[in-house]
């Protein structure tokens, strides 16, 4: 099945809808018209650039370039995790924990999926590796950021309770156990909700894209199920690692709650 090509003026028609929405927002004094237009411009520029990068990458197809692209995506995701936390660990710990958690979860699950499940030749074929890693990182990033934000915020608000448990002789892990579990739940709920609603409330983006591009719905569905499962695994393991390491960092060697290791986001 041939894919219908989209010209720039057709995209301009869609952009017109966003401009109309911006005008309505302006008239309603919501104070978001500028943000909406800026976000629309960023979407256009960022996706155009990434399209160019992907076309170049697909034509070269070497492991080194794929790895470099993956590393760049990982570092940007790590920065995003850090930026999304109201209270974050000082001294690069927040960035390091978020990035390391995504590396061990998103990267390892992506490689495992490429090698053991999909099996392209070579295994790092950019057409498969980059979109897969992108989706993994995007979702893992959300889970890790939500989990860390919930952890630090809850420890901050419930410090009296946590310290009271320490006073009664509980270990650090027991004293913050319920908070850690809630933080992990926060990180996992979005992907669980997505899986539960997939196909009923919403048609997932990747599957929709494949169907629009001419793939048979049955095959698109298989890919979507694969992606959902791998995203769930990556998000779960990433959130688990990030919350565990960050919570340990918030207690010192003598199991004291060290909220002085947090700094408040200026944004």
């Amino acid at each position: 099945m041939e894919v219908i090509d989209l010209s720039w003026w057709q995209l301009a028609l869609a952009a017109g809808l966003v401009v109309v929405l911006a005008a309505c927002i302006y008239l309603a004094r919501l104070g978001l018209a500028g943000s909406l237009l800026l976000a629309a411009v960023r979407t256009t520029v960022q996706l155009t650039l990434v399209g160019l990068v992907l076309e170049a990458l697909f034509s070269v197809g070497s492991l080194g370039w794929v790895a470099l692209m993956g590393l760049g995506m990982l570092l940007l995701a790590g920065r995003e995790v850090m930026a999304r936390q109201q209270r974050r660990l000082r001294g690069g710990w927040s960035f390091t924990i978020g990035t390391a958690a995504m590396f061990v979860s998103a990267f390892s699950v992506t490689v495992l999926t490429l090698v053991a499940v999909i099996g392209p030749t070579p295994w790092y074929e950019p057409q498969y590796a980059i979109p897969l890693l992108g989706m993994m990182l995007g979702n893992t990033m959300t889970g890790v950021a939500l989990g860390l934000d919930r952890l630090t915020e809850s420890l901050w608000r419930q410090r009296q309770l946590v310290e009271n448990r320490l006073m009664l002789g509980e270990s650090w892990s027991s004293a913050c156990g319920s908070i850690r579990r809630e933080a992990m739940r926060s990180g996992l709920m979005p992907i669980i909700n997505s899986m539960a609603a997939a196909g009923i409330v919403s048609l997932p983006g990747m599957m929709t894209g494949q169907i629009l591009a001419g793939t048979a719905p049955a095959l698109a569905v298989k890919y979507q199920i694969l992606i959902m499962f791998t995203i769930a695994a990556g998000t779960g393991f990433g959130t688990f690692v990030a919350v565990t390491v960050a919570s340990r960092r918030l207690f010192d060697r003598r199991e004291r709650l060290r909220l002085d290791r947090l700094t408040t986001s200026s944004g």
Partner: peptide, 20 residues
């Protein structure tokens, strides 16, 4: 001593207690 063992022996009762 391990920190939590110490605190169980030398117990601080704060002015404002928490209950969970």
């Amino acid at each position: 001593m391990r920190a939590h063992d110490w605190r169980r022996k030398v117990m601080l009762v704060p002015a404002e207690s928490a209950w969970w």
